[in-house]
């Protein structure tokens, strides 16, 4: 028994060492760092207590970034979820080419973000892009919209992100759909339920838990998404219209060169996320357990 415990610990040791050293320690160090005014690259640092936090409490940029982050995360989650669930329902039906389509739908999720972003920048290019060409050629518009300009950059970012991440919803939801016993549908059909009512009364209750998890995970990931946003607009003039919290945190550290401030933003991001998660659990968890 005692030996068994030792072996168990020994086998876990490499994992714990890595996680403790490279995640645990940085997280704690990050809290500590948030109490300092520290240059990103030079050793100088001064203790400022909660000064950084006080500053961000009234920093317009911070609240704006929370707002943009909320808009970005909220809209991409809703769209991914809608699109992903519909696609999963479709792919759960039987038709020719289903296997191939299941594979194809995965593609966008497997490519590097940088490729996804460049690809969409090419499609949305206002001089040579296919999207604007089609819009002008079909007479939908006379002046091609500048998708990467101020007015549409958030839209372009959202479309790119939804395209890139909806396969996650498809695959996760599909995996659960496949485990729903067919008898449930047959019983519902016997009761005279149409497709919509079968979805409402069989599929939804069965998949409530997985939807709960999908929204939770995607919520966390979209709210902390850095690369898509940064690559889409980070260094351009319009970046201020899509400056989400992760981008602002990155900028504070690596372009303002204020590592303490950046660390503070990371802590605040974590706090907001933890708060939102708690609320989310409070709102939906009970319900899920009951059903």
């Amino acid at each position: 028994m005692r030996k068994s415990a030792l072996v168990g610990w020994a086998l876990l040791a490499p994992s714990l060492l890595l996680l403790g050293g490279l995640v645990g320690y940085p997280i704690l160090y990050n809290f500590w760092l948030s109490l300092f005014a520290k240059h990103a690259f030079l050793p100088a640092q001064t203790f400022v207590g909660l000064g950084n936090y006080r500053y961000f409490a009234t920093d317009e940029e911070f609240w704006r970034s929370v707002g943009y982050g909320g808009i970005y995360a909220g809209s991409t989650i809703v769209l991914q979820l809608g699109l992903g669930v519909v696609a999963a329902l479709l792919l759960n039906e039987t038709f020719h080419g289903r296997g191939l389509l299941r594979g194809v739908v995965l593609f966008p999720y497997t490519i590097p973000t940088v490729v996804a972003v460049i690809l969409w920048k090419w499609l949305l290019n206002d001089s040579y892009g296919l999207v604007d060409y089609v819009l002008v050629a079909t007479g939908a518009t006379r002046i091609p919209p500048a998708w990467l300009g101020k007015d549409y950059i958030m839209w372009s970012l959202i479309v790119t992100s939804v395209w890139q991440f909806f396969p996650f919803v498809v695959v996760t939801y599909l995996a659960r759909l496949q485990t729903i016993p067919p008898e449930l549908y047959e019983a519902a059909t016997v009761d005279g339920a149409g497709a919509w009512r079968r979805f409402l009364h069989v599929t939804l209750p069965q998949t409530g838990a997985v939807l709960f998890v999908i929204v939770l995970l995607r919520g966390i990931w979209m709210f902390t998404k850095f690369d898509t946003v940064w690559l889409m607009a980070g260094e351009g003039g319009v970046s201020q219209y899509v400056r989400t919290l992760p981008v602002y945190a990155y900028e504070r550290t690596f372009t303002y060169l204020q590592a303490g401030m950046g660390a503070t933003l990371a802590v605040l991001m974590f706090g907001l996320l933890a708060g939102a998660t708690a609320v989310y659990f409070g709102l939906f968890r009970e319900e899920e357990i009951v059903s």
Binding site: I27, Y250, A259
Partner: peptide, 20 residues
């Protein structure tokens, strides 16, 4: 606890990570 570390996105620890 291991699962909890999953909740920390890289962007939240990149600064101390870089310093480390």
């Amino acid at each position: 606890l291991i699962l909890l570390t999953y909740m920390f996105a890289p962007i939240m620890v990149i600064i101390p990570f870089y310093i480390l």
